[in-house]
């Protein structure tokens, strides 16, 4: 278990709305993205990640208005992902006030972009998003375009490659578990955290407090991003943080 685990709210966005799907499909509108983000900040979330889940389909990013709202109302780090294709896009999102950007499709299609971005803005602001689909025991394949297209790339090979290219953090989502509320994929999280020195944020399928605490305790994951159970009010941010605090105190 790492020293200072982070609890992150994951907000999938379409236009001005917070949405959520199941295994990246069947997106349903939940409410106003701004209101949900503000609520989670007030409840003590450590970080927020916005994912414009249709952006890479249409090649655009509509999050700048939401990011601007966030710099005014949300004083914890904000990461933005979805549809970012170039250094120019990156700078636009950072100028709007994001602290980190997350890319997946563009990084897979143009590996050089990782180094270009990292050299320009520093690896601390560059998160590589990985959408992993289980293929076999201990084998996951990286997908692109919001979990829609297979790439043939082995997740662990990809993890090692992006670390060398200058990524600062990995945002790992299990496609199989995403939105299911059946539990995070511990095998995947363990394999990825053991393969890299980069901080890893795990996401996809968080079930309940016990599930989250177990993944923190049994792996070196740096953060867990929760979506579905949070939006559906099945979990309380303060309660998870209190429980985590107790575990850390016991250890030190």
């Amino acid at each position: 278990m790492i020293h200072n685990p982070r609890l992150i709210a994951r907000l999938d966005i379409k236009g001005n709305n917070l949405i959520k799907g199941l295994r990246f499909e069947g997106l349903r509108v939940i409410g106003s993205a701004k209101e949900f983000a503000k609520k989670y900040y007030k409840q003590g979330i450590d970080e927020i990640i916005y994912v414009d889940s249709v952006a890479s389909l249409y090649g655009r990013n509509s999050l700048t208005d939401l990011v601007d709202f966030s710099t005014e109302n949300i004083f914890v780090p904000v990461t933005v992902g979805g549809g970012i294709k170039s250094l120019d896009d990156v700078q636009k999102v950072l100028r709007a006030g994001a602290d980190k950007i997350a890319i997946n499709t563009a990084a897979i299609e143009n590996k050089k972009l990782i180094k270009t971005i990292s050299d320009k803005i520093g690896s601390q602001s560059l998160t590589i998003s990985i959408q992993a689909k289980k293929r076999d025991k201990n084998h996951w394949e990286a997908f692109k375009i919001c979990g829609r297209e297979p790439t043939g790339i082995d997740v662990i090979d990809w993890v090692k490659e992006i670390e060398n290219l200058g990524a600062g953090e990995i945002f790992l989502t299990s496609i199989d578990q995403d939105g299911t509320e059946l539990g995070l994929d511990k095998d995947l999280v363990k394999l990825v955290t053991e393969s890299t020195n980069l901080p890893v944020i795990a996401s996809g399928g968080s079930k309940d407090v016990d599930d989250i605490l177990r993944i923190f305790q049994e792996t070196d994951v740096s953060g867990i991003a929760i979506g579905s159970i949070l939006h559906h009010k099945k979990i309380d941010i303060k309660m998870i943080k209190n429980e985590l605090e107790k575990i850390i105190k016991k250890k030190t």
Binding site: M1, I2, H3, N4, P5, R6, D46, S123, Q124, G168, E169, T193, N197, L198, P199, D220, S222, G223
Partner: peptide
């Protein structure tokens, strides 16, 4: 142990 990572990112 990977308890502390560099860069140090997070809350203290």
């Amino acid at each position: 142990s990977k308890k502390f990572k560099i860069p140090n990112v997070g809350w203290h």
